[in-house]
Each structure stands twice: as C-alpha cells, then as structure tokens.
C-alpha cells in the first residue's frame, strides 16, 4: 500500500463553454494527507471527482502513481472514495456494502473475507456487519463508508466532505479517527471540505481553492501565518483576521504601514512591498500583543474556552498584496 502520488498538470474542466476549473497545477506527495478547502462552488469537488474518474477531463493531465489516468476508467484508477452522503447501498448489509466492490472485481472469496475482517477490526464495525445502513447511526454509516473504501486497499483515498452530515461532537471524533487511520495506513489521501478547521487540523498539505483555481498550497501553519493573499487571509482562521487598509511608508526606523486612521504599524524587514504602495495590514486576533503597542479592548464575548475580543488594535503582522489571485508565497 501507500505507493504513488497524485499530480495535476494544467488541468481544466469546462461545461458547455463555461470553464469551471482554470488550469490546476498541483503535486501531492506520496503518503500525504492533502485537504482541498474553499467555499462551496470553488471547484474543489470537481477536482476530486475528476481525480476519481467521475468527471471527464477537458484538458490537462491527471497522474496517479506516475500513470496518466485521464482515460482510465474510474474503477481502474486505484482510488476509493467516501461520499458526503456516504452513498451506502441501502438494500445491502454492511458486509455486502463492503464486499460489493471486491465481488465486482472478482476477488477470491477468502481474500474478501480477510479484508472485511481487517477493515471491520480497524473501524470497530464487527458487531454491525449484518445490519442494513438504515439501522445505523450517522457516525456508524460514516465508518461503513470508510470501511468500504478500506477494503479496496486503494493507492489513493478520496473524501468528499465526509463529515458535513454529522453533528459537531461526532465530527470532532471522526476527524481524529480519520487522521489516525491515515497515520496508520499512510495511504495518500485527498480530502475535500469547506470547513477550514478540518483543513487546519487534519492536513499535511492544505490546498486553498477559490473561484475555480488554487489560491495557495502549503502546510497548515505556513498558510495560516503567511497567507498568500487577501482571500486566504480572510478564509482561514476563526474569528477572522483583522484587515486594516494602509500605505507603506518609510522613515528613519525603516518601513512601516500608515493606516488611514493615522496609526503606525510596524513592518517586518523581509515583507515585500514598495514605499507608497496601498496595502492591507492583517492581524490575527489571537495574537494582538506580539510586537504591538498595546491598546484598549472592550469586554470580550465568549467562544468556548477562548475569549474573542472585538476591538481596534494596532499590532504586528504581515502585509498582503491588495490584489486577489496568484500569490507570491506560492510554492
């Protein structure tokens, strides 16, 4: 298991003249847990479905494990997919759901039994093998959907918003479980979600998508700390990053950002941007002090254990290009 990686080269998709994916270039290393994240309609599901072979490729290439798979039938791509709705066969028992794919591939019976046993053990599905999906809870169905993918022993796992139908508590549990499963199997995984917390907590590699193209690719913390553009900055983090418009200025101490309100915000020496350029200054709400000059906060409102504070503050941070789109920080 766990061989191969996924590579997209200038991948495009059009529907009747309308382009819904504009040239995706992306390499997902072997064994990585890549999360495609973005608002709904950003093209992330399309990309996943093209990877699975459920959508045609208009132009460009998809490679899996060094093999160009554009014209390889979905069932021969070595992938397994977990759907948002789980797409369990409602008329089949849990066991039959898990073995259907193997039966279709004419896998020998003893192998089928073996693999189901193993998958059931990993996912704690043992006692439910004879039940129908309708007799299972949401979390159990989710597990069966994963078990079905597991028995296939694929080269790549695809997840399409698998947790969005679960309640908040279960979602956190399953998040950990999927992550643990990945750590155990080390199978390359592509995971689509619109939930940035899922992306930040689960991914080795976060791929932020927006408006049918990739905005930024990188490790979670790298992206969080150095968003490549305004969209990424606003999209990741909750509560959202504070964004303050200003202009780069320079005095004896070096460059700084002059806000419209007359505040003077410090600028890291390595930040790009030329004097006189209009910029947006971003400050993560959870580190208001950092290198900042202090300020007065109104009483905060509670969000769980964290205290979110609404207020105006001047602090350190990075400078973002005002223009959306391709970012300098891209790898």
């Amino acid at each position: 298991m766990a061989e191969g990686y996924v590579e997209y080269r200038n991948l495009r998709k059009s529907f009747g003249g309308l382009e819904i994916l504009h040239g995706v270039d992306l390499t997902i290393p072997e064994g990585a847990f890549a999360v495609l994240v973005g608002p709904s309609g950003c093209g992330k599901s399309t990309l996943l479905r093209m990877t699975a072979g459920l959508e045609d490729v208009t132009s460009g290439e998809i490679n899996i494990a060094g093999r160009m798979v554009n014209n390889v039938h979905a069932k021969n791509r070595g992938i397994a997919m977990v759907f948002q709705s789980y797409a369990l066969y409602p008329h089949m028992s849990v066991e039959d759901n898990m073995s259907f794919g193997l039966k279709m591939r004419k896998t020998p019976l003893h192998l089928i039994t073996d693999r189901i046993k193993r998958a059931a053990a990993i996912l704690k599905l043992g006692p439910m093998l004879d039940r129908l999906p309708s007799q299972l809870s949401g979390g159990q169905r989710q597990r069966v959907a994963m078990g079905r993918a597991l028995t296939r022993e694929p080269e790549v796992f695809l997840f399409d918003e698998p947790l969005s139908n679960l309640d908040a508590k279960l979602r956190v549990e399953m998040r950990a479980e999927i992550k643990a499963l990945h750590q155990r199997l080390k199978t390359t995984t592509i995971y689509v979600t619109h939930d940035q917390i899922e992306a930040m907590t689960m991914a080795d590699l976060v791929v932020v998508m927006h408006d049918d193209r990739i905005e930024q690719v990188g490790e979670p913390l790298a992206i969080y700390d150095r968003p490549a553009n305004l969209f990424v900055a606003e999209f990741l983090g909750s509560p959202a990053m504070n964004l303050i418009p200003g202009t780069i200025a320079q005095d004896a101490d070096g460059r700084f950002v002059q806000t419209e309100a007359g505040l003077r915000l410090p600028l890291e020496p390595e930040a790009n941007g030329t004097v006189g350029q209009a910029v947006v200054y971003g400050i993560r709400p959870e580190k208001p002090d950092g290198r900042g000059r202090g300020g007065r906060y109104p009483p905060g409102h509670c969000v769980g254990k964290d205290r979110a504070v609404d207020g105006q503050h001047e602090a350190a941070g990075g400078v973002l290009p005002r223009r959306r789109g391709r970012a300098a920080a891209r790898r």
Binding site: G53, L54, E55, D56, S59, M68, V69, N70, N71, V72, H73, A74, K75, N76
Partner: peptide, 16 residues
Amino acid sequence: MSHTTPMVEDGPTGAD
C-alpha cells in the same frame, strides 16, 4: 487532446 492510454471500459470516463 491527445490521449494514448486506451479506454478500458464504458462509463463516466467518457472517451468510449
């Protein structure tokens, strides 16, 4: 498009 990989079977992949 210039694909060389033969289509393996009918289905949503499409080049059939």
